[in-house]
């Protein structure tokens, strides 16, 4: 009986030590700095929209994608998300930062027009820095000129 209790206590100590080690490992990781930018990812529930070179126009294809995204957002009113603006690798990184912001903002404005609340959305540009397709051809470039929705919750 006494042995069982001893074992139980020992088990708890081991568990506690394990948790402590895990926490320590996590905080250590944070201290060294985990990534400050996300991985490039393709849209799943909310579809990405694509742009022509040096353009931030919401064309008719983009409109229908954004309309179906808006329908999902209206059914899932709890979800918050970031609109990411991206560019292809061509052109100057600095100009592409501004261009990516314009793309994100154009999408944000269009969704506002469809009745999506401003408190649910924010924008960020990653310029040409987070390509979805790392290759250097027109197929890759057309995939990389995009606005992407990153769902926060």
């Amino acid at each position: 009986m006494r042995l069982t209790r001893l074992l139980r206590v020992a088990g708890r100590v081991v568990l506690l030590a394990g948790i402590l080690m895990l926490v320590a490992a996590c905080s250590c990781r944070t201290k060294r700095g985990v990534a400050n930018i996300p991985m490039a990812e393709e849209g799943s529930i909310l579809k990405d929209v694509y742009f022509a070179f040096d353009s931030y126009d919401i064309d008719t294809t983009n409109r229908s994608i954004l309309q179906s995204n808006a329908m999902w957002l209206k059914e899932n009113t709890e979800s918050r998300f970031v609109v990411e603006g991206h560019c292809d690798e061509r052109g100057t990184p600095e100009y592409n930062m501004a261009l990516g912001q314009k793309r994100a903002q154009a999408v944000y404005d269009y969704l506002r027009g469809l009745g999506i609340g401003a408190s649910r959305m924010s924008t960020v540009s990653y310029g040409e820095e987070l390509p979805l397709d790392p290759r250097h051809n027109e197929v890759a470039w057309s995939k990389n000129r995009r606005a992407h929705f990153r769902i926060e919750r």
Binding site: G33, V34, A35, N36, I37, P93, E94, M97, Y126, E129
Partner: peptide, 9 residues
């Protein structure tokens, strides 16, 4: 820098 992000311009 060692920011694990984007440092530019």
């Amino acid at each position: 820098t060692d920011e694990k992000g984007l440092a530019m311009s």
